[in-house]
Design a protein around this nucleic acid. Sequence first.
DNA 1: TATATTTGCAACCGAACGGTTTCTTAAAAC
DNA 2: GTTTTAAGAAACCGTTCGGTTGCAAATATA
Lengths: 107, 107
Amino acid sequence: MMRRDIFQAIADPTRRAIITLIALQAMTPNAIAENFNTTRQSVSKHLRILTECDLLKQEQQGREIYYSLQLEKMKEIDIWLQQFRKLWETRFHQLENVLATIKKQKK
Amino acid sequence: MMRRDIFQAIADPTRRAIITLIALQAMTPNAIAENFNTTRQSVSKHLRILTECDLLKQEQQGREIYYSLQLEKMKEIDIWLQQFRKLWETRFHQLENVLATIKKQKK
DNA sequence: TATATTTGCAACCGAACGGTTTCTTAAAAC
DNA sequence: GTTTTAAGAAACCGTTCGGTTGCAAATATA
């Protein structure tokens, strides 16, 4: 079994598009595949990869399978970004201070 | 020339580690490589990939080259996440409302 | 029951990836 | 001026990736 990682999963543009597509409502593989210029089997592979790293959840309904996004898992990316968000906010406030100082000096 | 993409760039764990490592201060390839169990040349390749998609900036100083993180570029990931952040905040507020309703009924 | 539909799996293919080794260039130190 | 150091480039290797084709299983429809 392949080692799956959320960052590796979102590296592919088709997979990112799938994530966005099903973010609002669950969809079947066939319905999803209709949105892309590729084969159903290729989309099926992407769905497998996304499911393997818990980004997608399957729900069987007769012979159809509905795939939906596991929003919770998306937060993992957000958590990783947190460290940098702190930095760019700090930098933003430093800029604010510089601007405030300049304004004061002009008075 | 290879097509470079920020999402593909952060897919590799070593590259993510490099990003975190130089987030606070610029570093030379040799200094960066000391932190990993791999060759200097391999790190050099990662630096090239990260630089190609504008995540890193080079600054020559004599025969040394300092690499630093382009925080602005990291925001692109944040922007993509925005659409999902909206969704999970909405879901959180819905849960809040449910809890509030339950609390009211208990009175 | 026979046929059609939905889906996943296996095998294969060319391209890209991550790594190592070797070599070159350029600056610094002696 | 010779040697050491910093760094990137090129060639190569095994593995993984994304895609296609063909097939099998299970459910729905006639």
